[in-house]
Nucleic acid binder design. Structure first.
Length: 676
RNA sequence: GGGGCCGUAGCUCAACGGUUAGAGCAGCAGACUCAUAAUCUGUUGGUUGCAGGUUCGAAUCCCGCCGGCCCUACCA
């Protein structure tokens, strides 16, 4: 087999928060592929970095009262620790805020300028005069100019109307609560349309993209002229200043993918390698692994940039879907927004690596992590089938070691060796779930072999000692063969298996030759079974983290006062007009077709019942509300809503969405009591 | 609004347009006792979302519905 030179990347995680199990789908997927290539003897390097620029990071740093540099340094350490905890082994992990990246950005910029792709245009944008920043759409809220719906973000409302942020009625900055100003500033654009023909042929031919992605690009973007890409941001902005456009910075998406190269460069410096051999030599393969959310940037902008600057184009962009947990989007409220660090407090990283491998295919479908299935699968496959092989035979040959010559095994080892090609092909194409299925077939056959040869019976007859040794030699070699095939997924198991036989697993071809005549170390458990209790504990910790972790540190910012200034003074008589009552939630149900509402039936004591439609669906489970006490405006005029008559209002704070916080009376309160 | 992907057994998934749609898990019935309540044998279970069309032949191709997820470029 010819040695390939392969450069692999995972998307750069944004330096704005911790790594969670959703991120890990990608990093584990990539790491498996890289380990597979290395095991096969190819020259392969795995590069990544933190993506450290942009408005969001500027704001996070401000919020925590630290400089941007301090902030991204801290996050970088956390990220590297989290990845290491899952055996994701980068050859280099850098940062887009590095000298290498700055220099490379400048080189790209020069080339793109020289190619005549840059044009200057004025951009009108909303500006927050309090925070002193330009506001991206998601930082502006207001009424939809078409239907008047309040609290709508950006450039489209929930009813599907589209508009520009500047058209919002009564806009408010979500950062400061201030009314934004409209400001105009010059921006630089890259005229990506000038590379339309190139992008059309690059995306639609060859094997650079999964077919559904090529279709998506054709259907969505390439059927019409590509719009110019706004690549600059006026100060204040956290990023690299554009050398020939002072006071303006490259938009984070310009310098982020260049970070792949900057990370390569750092690695080259450390290892005395030639950078151009990796990025300007067409014999080098370049593989990017990304999530489907950033398809556009990696399949159009990035190839265009590389083309314009004369670098290697990606060989293949491997795009994966998102992770759901128990069929739902990860959510802090459900405790399924599980951080990498939280997972490691409870469960073995190998479990997640194997589970993801058993789910991942070559397509871009989302994958679901059903928690019960997760536990069943890792226990059944890894402990019950694979590790069990060693566990049930290794002790029998502890004194004798393996037989000196490989015994007759009915062709089992040879069958396993022959499976190498299929399994390798599955890894190569990212069809890990197929690879795992093929391997488990081998494990099933091996267990059946042990069953039929019954070493525990042979052991009882001292005249059959030799036979016993032979049977265990076969079983343990089948086990080792399986572990070689699983080594990209389970590096720890591979190491442990190497120790068991005093012979490390180093190459894919180790599955072709049985071990004979070697000593067998005392057997130790290689994996503990996963327990649903641990999973629940992990969920509980995540919930507690979400509920208690952040908000406990009140910073008493003036954010909310600014968003909603204190109302004009009122008298006690005014207040008395509002009749607040303690109410008990008798029933809570989802309203079909309603996006935000829950239908509550409340008891105010006696026969007094109220039906209230409350906009708290995103924040509360109906089940957890039933039986609890809330505060209701009891004399509010009933309001006819789309789904029925609402006879009151439950009192809550918070801006909306998932951030709604019901006021609940302390223990001892009774339904019907007035609040004053 | 435009677009992409998906819908197959209780669950998670397979099946170049070609035998009777298959696996694993779960379930059920046995066996075994070496092994971490592991393992082995057998077995229940499907109108392939719905309705049409093309074809000798459709889970697969085409059209229309229904349902789910996602994208829609100053969002990282």
């Amino acid at each position: 087999m010819k040695e390939r030179r392969i450069l692999v990347t995972s998307a750069l995680p944004y330096a704005n928060g911790p790594i969670h199990i959703g991120h890990l789908v990608e990093y584990i997927q990539t790491d498996i592929w890289v380990r597979f290539q290395k095991l096969r003897g190819h020259r392969c390097i795995f590069l990544c970095a933190d993506d450290t620029h942009g408005t969001a990071i500027m704001i996070s740093a401000q919020k925590h009262g630290v400089t941007e540099e301090a902030w991204i340094t801290r996050i970088n350490e956390e990220h590297q620790r989290d990845f290491a905890g899952f055996d994701v082994a980068f050859d280099n992990y850098g940062s887009t805020h590095s000298d290498e990246n700055r220099q490379l950005c400048a080189a790209f910029w020069k080339a793109i300028r020289a190619a005549g792709l840059v044009v200057e245009k004025d951009v009108t944008q909303l500006y927050d005069p309090v925070k002193g920043v330009f506001l991206a759409d998601r930082f502006v809220k207001g009424k939809c100019p078409v239907c008047g719906k309040p609290d709508q973000y950006g450039d489209s409302c929930e009813n599907g109307h589209t508009y520009t942020a500047a058209e919002l009625v009564e806009p408010v900055s979500t950062l400061s609560g201030a009314a934004p100003e409209i400001r105009s500033a010059p921006h630089l654009f890259i005229q990506i349309e000038k590379l339309h023909d190139f992008l059309e042929s690059w995306t639609q031919s060859g094997d650079h993209l999964q077919p559904e992605v090529a279709n998506y690009l054709k259907g969505h973007f390439l059927h019409e002229p590509l719009r110019d890409w706004d690549i600059s941001r006026p100060a204040p902005y956290w990023g690299f200043e554009i050398p020939d456009f002072p006071g303006n910075y490259w938009f984070v998406w310009f310098d982020a993918p260049i970070g792949y190269m900057a990370s390569t460069w750092q690695w080259c410096k450390q290892h005395g390698e030639d950078f151009d051999a990796w990025w300007r030599n067409p014999d080098t393969e370049i593989h990017h692994f990304i999530g489907k959310d950033i398809t556009y940037f990696h399949t159009l902008f990035w190839p265009a940039m590389l083309k314009a600057a004369g670098f290697n184009l990606p060989t293949k962009i491997h795009i994966h879907g998102f992770l759901t947990v128990d069929g739902r989007k990860m959510s802090k409220r459900d405790g399924t927004f599980i951080k990498a660090a939280t997972y490691l407090n409870h469960l073995d990283p190998s479990f997640l690596r194997y589970f993801y491998a058993s789910k991942l295919g070559p397509g871009i479908d989302d994958i679901d992590m059903n928690l019960q299935e997760f536990v069943n699968k890792v226990n059944s496959d890894l402990v019950g089938k694979v590790v069990n092989l060693a566990s049930r035979t290794a002790r029998f040959v502890q004194e004798t070691g393996l037989s000196a010559t490989y015994p007759e095994d009915g062709g089992l080892f040879q069958q396993g060796a022959a499976a190498e090609e299929d399994i390798a092909a599955a890894y190569e194409t990212g069809d890990y779930n197929r690879a795992m299925r093929l391997v488990m077939e081998l494990a099933d056959r091996a267990n059946a072999y042990v069953e039929s040869t019954a070493p525990w019976a042979l052991r009882k007859d001292s005249s059959k000692a030799h036979q016993l040794q032979d049977v265990c030699t076969v079983a343990l070699n089948l086990f080792r063969q399986i572990v070689v095939y699983l080594a990209p997924v389970l590096p720890r198991l591979a190491t442990q298996t190497g120790q068991l036989f005093n012979c490390p697993i180093q190459s894919w071809s180790d599955a072709q030759t049985p071990l004979v005549g070697v000593a067998v170390s005392p057997f130790q458990h290689m994996l503990q079974r996963a327990d649903m209790k641990e999973v629940h504990a992990m969920i509980e910790e995540t919930k507690a983290d979400a509920a208690g972790g952040e908000p406990v540190r009140f910073d008493d910012s003036d954010e909310f006062l600014k968003a909603e200034p204190i109302a004009p003074q009122c008298t006690i008589d005014d207040f008395i007009k509002v009749d607040l009552r303690v109410a008990r939630v008798i029933a809570a149900e989802e309203v079909p077709d309603a996006r935000k509402l829950l239908k509550l039936t409340l008891s105010l004591g006696g026969a007094e019942r109220r039906t209230v439609f409350a906009g708290i669906k995103a924040a509360y489970e109906p089940k957890q509300l039933v039986g609890s006490l809330v505060v209701v405006v009891a004399n509010l005029a009933p309001r006819q809503m789309k789904f029925g008559l609402s006879e009151g209002m439950v009192v809550a704070s918070g801006p909306g969405g998932e951030d709604v916080f019901l006021l609940r009376p302390d223990k001892g309160a009774q339904p019907g009591q007035r609040v004053h």
